[in-house]
Amino acid sequence: MQPLSSWLKARWPWLAVLACLTLAPAFLNKFYLGLMVQVFILAVFALSYDLLMGYSGILSFGHAMFFGSGAYVVGLLLKGAAWPLYAVLPVIIATGALMGVLVGIVTLRVRGVYFAMITLAFAEVIYILSASSQLRPWTGGDEGLHGIPVPAWMSPTAERVTFYYISLSFLVLMYFLARRIVNSPTGRVLIAIRENEARAATIGYNVFWYKVLIIVISGVLAALAGGLNALYFRNATPEVLGVGRTIDALLMTIIGGMGTLIGPVLGAVVIRVLGNYLADWFGPRWPLVFGLIFVALVMFFPWGIVGTLRQRPLRGLAQWIKRLSRGAGQKAS
């Protein structure tokens, strides 16, 4: 056991952030608390994506299917079947895991971009199913399910502070779970597989099942995030299954830094908070501005914000400024 003081010393920035987040409800109004809740939910979704892409090198274009399925499980069981919430939780986990196993077994026969394409197809099938008019009596078709009954004690509107703490605890819990997985021997094997599958196999690892395992874990995390999302918005619409959701996860992970876990969390903050302000300032054209910012971020932070800062603090930015000023000088002469 290391002494408490050194433990604190190594982690004080995190504890400070956590303390700020814990005290936030005292300072933020309902709207900003809601925004934070969305950030936390998206952050878990991004985390789950990072486990796949960042740590295991599995590029999936269908991650929304896990998120959306979690949302629809909540919608169908709470609204349609009037189940109690505690009974829904294991179903969300089971759904995420089952889908992970299925997707893994079917699609892991192919690799890289082919795997990505098949996951995209998978997700689109589920998306189309969710919006199909034949299933309207159950899923609400393209309108989705609205007015999902949420227990009064955690109502996202009346008890927003409670909901805020639930989401914050959810994020913290999932973050430590992901950290634990990444730092475990299994996590090392996943990094090895990301680097070179054949090498991992020649040491004696069954690469296939390790990949299925991480897809399952990642799928469960994403499904839980989707479930909480449905509780917060009290709805589940085809949009949560759409390819746009997957792109969100991809962007958050890339902006924050692949394979860092904390990066995607930061990415979620950037995307959701920046998106909110940009929409305020620029109206419906905000994605255009966001696109420009994204390009700039990728140029200055090629390994994501966290990844780049870890590798070479701010050197990229400094180099660019130097190059720009040199360019200006040449023009002048």
Binding site: P185, V189, I191, E195, A201, Y205
Partner: peptide, 30 residues
């Protein structure tokens, strides 16, 4: 491949097959 390896065949490939993102210790432990 993994079954062959588990039977007790070790491979030292031409490119050495070191996992560059893992430490020496982790490379051995894995």
């Amino acid at each position: 491949t993994y079954s062959v390896a588990q039977l007790g065949i070790g491979y030292v490939p031409e490119d050495r097959g070191i996992f560059t993102d893992l430490t020496v210790e982790e490379n051995l432990k894995i």
